[in-house]
């Protein structure tokens, strides 16, 4: 069963209750141990691989040198025949025969090492992938566990501090109202500022005798006099 499916099953099956863990601590530890074991296997496989590769190279060198020796001796046998020394040629031929059986043996050894190398390389790759997969699963389990613990802590904190969590709508209303208040305050401050600057302009205009002038007692008296007139 995939790890995500396991988590899903656990969450469905009663883990609605906060703080209930998807995988108990023991499970996580076993998992971590599995990863450690796999890592050990991987290291051993890598070590074996270098050993076997060294042996493979040795065998390969041996094969090459035997081949060289055979072709050299074939040339010698040819030379002996050229000189008409049949006996010597026969001796050389016997040596070639021994070399060839050595070559056959070494070639087989080399092939067997090559097979071993490719098997070990596969194993290293597979184990590496397995470890990555385990680590991915462990990370999912640990995250689930951590989030559940965090939720439990948050819920307990709310419970212990007696502060009730507001409903989303109430929170929304309060934040919007606060934002509106701040906005209104800002607008009022701006209004005040612009009023002040209007006022100071008016003052200066009055002082300069520009614009609508304030009525004075004299002008009122003049108005009354003219009405009586």
């Amino acid at each position: 069963m995939s790890i995500l499916r396991k988590i899903m099953t656990a969450v469905r099956g009663g883990a609605r209750e906060m703080g209930e863990l998807v995988v108990d601590a023991n499970g996580t530890r076993i998992f971590e141990q599995e990863i450690k074991d796999a890592q050990t296997h991987l290291n051993k496989a890598r070590h074996d691989l270098t050993d076997v590769m060294a042996k493979q190279m040795q065998a390969s060198r041996q094969v090459e040198s035997l081949k060289r020796e055979i072709s050299e001796h074939e040339a010698y046998a040819g030379q002996a025949l050229d000189k008409g020394d049949e006996n010597l040629a026969m001796e050389i031929a016997e040596k070639i025969n021994r070399l060839e059986s050595d070559l056959a043996e070494q070639t087989q050894v080399h092939e067997s090492f090559s097979g071993h190398v490719s098997r070990l390389k596969d194993l290293v790759k597979k184990t590496g992938r397995q470890i990555k997969e385990y680590e991915r699963q462990l990370s999912m389990v640990k995250t689930t566990e951590s989030v559940q613990k965090a939720s439990a802590a948050i819920t307990n904190n709310f419970a212990s501090s007696n502060s009730k969590m507001l409903s989303a709508k109430d929170s929304l209303d309060r934040i919007k109202k606060r934002q509106q208040d701040n906005f209104d305050r800002l607008a009022a401050a701006e209004q005040l500022e612009s009023d002040n600057s209007d006022k100071s302009l008016e003052d200066r205009m009055t002082a300069a005798g520009i614009g609508e002038q304030k009525s004075s007692a004299n002008s009122v008296l003049d108005r009354i006099k003219s009405k009586r007139g």
């Binding site: 951590s146 613990k149 965090a150 439990a152 802590a153 948050i154 307990n156 904190n157």
Partner: peptide, 10 residues
Amino acid sequence: PIPGETEVLQ
């Protein structure tokens, strides 16, 4: 900080 098994910051 919120106390608990896992450390959480509010």
